[in-house]
């Protein structure tokens, strides 16, 4: 068996197809996608919205911190509940 393959058992104990390392990484990536989306897209979107809404904040650090806080926590909650709202 290749090193990156793992034998799996189904709920009734029967062996199922092995899952490759790439398969496992993809599963992890998809499971964490809401959180990744929160940080990857919602955070910069919120940052840019704050900077446009409050021109004085354009040079400050806090819109980025606020964006990360909103995007990160929204994504984390979505990850836990399975819903965006």
């Amino acid at each position: 068996m290749p090193r990156d393959d793992v034998a799996h058992l189904s709920s009734d104990g029967a062996p199922t197809a092995p899952v490759s390392l790439i398969g496992r990484l993809l599963t992890l990536l998809l499971q964490g996608m809401p959180l990744i989306f929160g940080i990857g897209f919602i955070a910069p979107l919120m940052t840019q919205l704050l900077e446009r809404a409050l021109p004085g904040a354009a040079q400050a650090e806090w819109p980025l911190v606020a964006g990360l806080a909103i995007g990160g926590s929204w994504g984390a909650v979505a990850n836990l509940t399975g819903r965006w709202l």
Partner: peptide, 14 residues
């Protein structure tokens, strides 16, 4: 998603 994230962090989220 990778495209959205890339453009968003490059300053083009809106």
């Amino acid at each position: 998603n990778a495209l959205l994230f890339g453009f968003a962090w490059a300053g083009y989220a809106l």
